[in-house]
Nucleic acid binder design. Structure first.
Length: 303
DNA sequence: CTTTCGCCCTGAGTGC
DNA sequence: TGCACTCAGGGCGAAA
């Protein structure tokens, strides 16, 4: 369940290894991990072999690595787009390292300073994917995401909203769009076309921090509480990012989707039965949108 | 256009 | 030991 902070840790770890690297080999163990690639696996492999990567960029939960243009000095027009889905990992390995179980795709790289490297895409449930995609100019001309000052975005990511940590994120526009929705607050927080990067875990955490019930209708949420909720979203994401950043090993992208979670700081998610850190009343878990929703029945009431 | 729903996918864990 | 069953849910296309 990687969300913005986990994906950012992956991006940050990949960045020094892939920037300036050349693709020397591509092994596709399971074509289903290329579901979002238009064309067969052979096309993915052929176009990637010999390509030069120029960085690692992230918007919300999407990650992409632009390829340098074959024409000298021209803007890049293609990127490897990755989404980790529920269980995906991008692991940086040495070429000699054994292949982990559930490895779906392997990219062999050579870097002018770091030498040969391997990026392994491991994904148990195959909700994640890798693809080659066309880069399009951003409508506002601003950098498309975090990691590279490049005003172009993969076509598959163009409909994804900027995330709350993006310097170009527009708070008043977000609050207006949020409050005009005719649905409940958690549904809206999880809608990546409205605001990106938030998944089930950090939605529950931010709602708990802002004392908002997950089924609060947006028509009855005040602008003030909406702004407070946005502030709590940012705090929750930043705190997770800080914790992930400290445990990150520069040599390897060491993200374990199962146990490497920033679980030590969770106040609501997965805490059902445990006392609310604020009032002591047990946290409740309910089914909602085929997901678990965790909240404090005393602190978080529909109003 | 907006909102909701169903589907994709499988290893790990649990109970008998 | 082995089998059946449950669980985790992000993103997207189709439908209402």
């Amino acid at each position: 369940m990687p969300e913005l902070p986990e994906v950012e840790v992956v991006r940050h770890g990949l960045e020094p290894a892939v920037t300036g690297a050349t693709v020397t080999s591509v092994v596709v163990h399971d074509e289903r991990s290329l579901r979002r690639h238009l064309g067969p696996a052979e096309d993915f492999i052929d176009r990637l072999l010999g390509a030069h990567l120029i960085g690692a960029v992230r918007r919300g939960k999407f990650l992409w690595m632009p390829l340098s243009s074959p024409i000298d000095g021209a803007e890049p027009h293609t990127a490897i787009v990755g989404h980790l889905g529920m269980s995906g990992q991008l692991l940086l390995r040495t070429p000699e390292a054994p292949t982990a179980p559930l490895t779906r795709v392997q990219l062999g790289l050579t870097h002018p300073e770091h030498g040969p490297l391997r990026v392994d895409f491991v994904d148990q449930r195959i909700f994640g994917s890798l693809a080659l995609d066309e880069l399009l100019p951003t409508p506002d001309g601003a950098a498309a995401g975090h990691g590279l000052l490049l005003a172009s975005i993969p076509s598959q990511v163009a409909h994804i909203a900027r995330d709350p940590l993006d310097p170009v994120f527009d708070d008043p526009v977000f609050v207006r769009r949020l409050l005009s929705r005719r649905t409940t607050v958690k549904r809206a927080l999880l809608d990546q076309t409205l605001v990106s990067g938030i998944g089930n875990i950090y939605a529950d955490e931010a709602l708990w921090a802002a004392r908002v019930h997950y089924e609060q209708p947006l028509e009855s949420l005040s602008p003030r509480r909406a702004r407070e909720l946005l502030a709590e979203v940012r705090l929750v994401l930043r705190r997770a990012l800080d914790e992930g950043g400290t445990s990150f090993d520069a040599q390897y992208v060491n993200v374990n989707g199962a146990s490497g979670y920033f679980s030590h700081s969770l106040r609501a998610y997965g805490q059902q039965g445990k006392p609310c850190p604020r009032c002591g009343r047990p946290i409740v878990r309910e089914q909602f949108m085929n997901r678990g929703s965790h909240y404090c029945p005393r602190c978080q009431r529909v109003r």
